[in-house]
Amino acid sequence: MENSGGFHYEGEKAWCAGCGDFGILAALEKALLKSGKRPDEVLVVSGIGQAAKMPHYIKTNGFNGLHGRALPPAFGAKAANHKLTVIVASGDGDMYGEGGNHFIHNIRRNIEITAIAHNNQIYGLTKGQASPTSERGMKTKLQPEGVILTPFNPIAVAIALDAPFVARSFSQEVELTAELILEAMSVPGFAFIDVLQPCVSFNKLNTYEWYQKRSYKLGPDHDPADKAKALEKAFEWGERIPLGVIYKNPRPGYVANTIGLDSEPLINKTTALEDVKRLTEKFY
């Protein structure tokens, strides 16, 4: 029925031609197909932004909420029904700016979801203002003299908070991105992937060429279990930008740590009238 035809959505996509989002969408589809999950077992959650259109462009369950608020409902849905595979598609403005607080605290929760940040270092939907990851000196209509704020380093923050899986990819590297998403889906905790992505309309600095020239894939010599080394890689930016799994520290997540969520999903648990009656007796 609806599951036939897999995850691919044929309809129009309101992204600019050449947008990095297409690559991330293709990678997500690939990873989902490879995972063997049925579309009805998967929930894609987003906030607002170009990246956040994702739930409309893939045939899974969807929740397209508010700007900056992709992670809270993703956590709520996963906690309510932990049988779901929950994937968050968010942008650098959505996840690091408006939703920065939720980024911090859902890593702390270590909720078992995959969070993908489409990081194009600029605001696309609102047409070209600085984002939390914009380079210093980048000029925009709202930063006419150039950005003076220090860029947010999502990889370093995630490692500092001990996220169990921290990775970086580049949207043109569809195979790598798909591999990372697939691995993230099997992580028993908060799995985070920052995907560098050109914005062909507004970011004239961080172009395909710019990323191609600098990015490289981490080899077997990098040990993601080494936190100090991982942090070192997190600060590697500029001339060389590492891609791949930067940090790994698997440990039990929120669902596993919450008493009562071990087997049956929360949505199947109901309070009987007898239980309410028992509670009223405590008031005598």
Partner: peptide
């Protein structure tokens, strides 16, 4: 902001 959005996610999932 989180508490209401978390509850909405849980509710959407059927709780």
């Amino acid at each position: 902001i989180a508490s209401v959005n978390i509850a909405l996610g849980a509710s959407a999932a059927g709780a």
